[in-house]
Design a binder for these strands. Structure first.
Lengths: 204, 204
DNA sequence: GTCTATAAATCGATAGAC
DNA sequence: GTCTATCGATTTATAGAC
């Protein structure tokens, strides 16, 4: 039995920690400086490793960024679900969701990274395929949630929940991208638009 | 009098033609391959010049891309104004605008370039400042137009025209960015969202 | 698995000839 | 003003030591 396993940390576990740490640091740097503005060397050094460690855990920059986006997407879904399953009525849930969006768009950078990485996809079929998969997953999850929440409230959406999901996700992405450029941009537009959308397109 | 002026083309005119041609070609390449995916050498050669000609007419890659975006923004404003000043009623004008958006988002790439360039802005104060100027101009122009068109129809928007402009521009940008990734994305979402927005938020 | 050293390629930008 | 040639800097990715 090795020293590692006596300590309770196997080699595989230590590598998993390295990978996790790299993703964590990469996330901060990608969000702060963008995809093109972040070199793998910066990531490695900031994480306390060298570039070799990056290439031992990821096939390259693209896969690292995809791993970063996965952690973000996971949190997004968790946050949205949490807001929409709050134990109140529909209005309360919408309030909770609006507050969550407001916070996310406040110091965003997520959408900025997402759309910059989408530009990379144009010259990388692998990135393109993986990103499309994830976006469709996000839209589907949002649509499901919208359906369930409105059904709970006894309402029905005039146009499909899928379209509503696309509209809200697009609005969030566009708003976040503009906001990352212009900090004075009014973020409350999202909540107001969403309310207007629901008001005009739901029926009992 | 030089040969040039006898031909009716002065040196300044020929340089203006070079500049125009460079912007034209750069626009195609930036839209097709993105900002990072397009080198100045490619642009120069595709336009029938060498890199030196690029640097004789622009301070660098950033200024060239800004010139490209200016031609696009100009066309955007023209198109939107044309749709909204069509000689019909409000519904007809909305139809015309929806059709215009549908066409623009059909083979988009504009929003993709815009948001990718916004990522560049994070490390270039000049780009950041110029882009913010232009976006505020676009929002202001849109808001003015919305105000005038609704006033024509005898309607009033519940939340300000400025917010409506931000919402529609953001939605278009986000939708275009997602669409440039996923060609199957349903673009009609824009028109439907806009109609829903107007329906719920206007009063006489 | 991680590090050091280096390869290999790209690209923005500049200098000097014409 | 444009072209040719080149510099200089960056960065992804790899090879080999430990």
């Amino acid at each position: 039995m090795s020293v590692d396993s006596e300590r309770g940390t196997t080699r595989a576990e230590r590598q998993a920690q390295t990978r996790e740490r790299l993703v964590e640091v990469a996330r901060e740097l990608f969000l702060a400086d963008g995809y093109a503005g972040t070199s793998l060397d910066k990531v490695a050094v900031a994480a306390g490793f060298s570039k070799g460690a990056v290439y031992s855990n990821f096939s390259g920059k693209e896969e690292l960024c995809m791993a970063v986006l996965d952690t973000i997407h996971e949190e997004q879904v968790e946050g949205v679900v949490a807001a929409f399953t709050a134990d109140t009525d529909l209005d309360g849930r919408i309030d909770a969701f609006a507050a969550w969006v407001r916070e996310k768009l406040g110091k965003p950078r997520w959408t900025a990274l997402e759309v910059e990485f989408a530009a990379v996809a144009r010259q990388s079929p692998w990135v393109a395929g993986e990103l499309v998969k994830r976006h469709r997953m996000l839209v589907a999850a949002s649509a499901d949630l919208i359906d369930r929440v409105l059904a709970d409230a006894g309402l029905r959406l005039d146009f499909g929940a899928h379209k509503a999901a696309v509209a809200l996700l697009s609005l969030g992405i566009g708003l976040g991208a503009m906001r990352s450029l212009d900090p004075e941009l009014d973020v409350d537009v999202f909540a107001e638009t969403m309310r207007a959308l629901l008001r005009s397109s739901t029926s009992a």
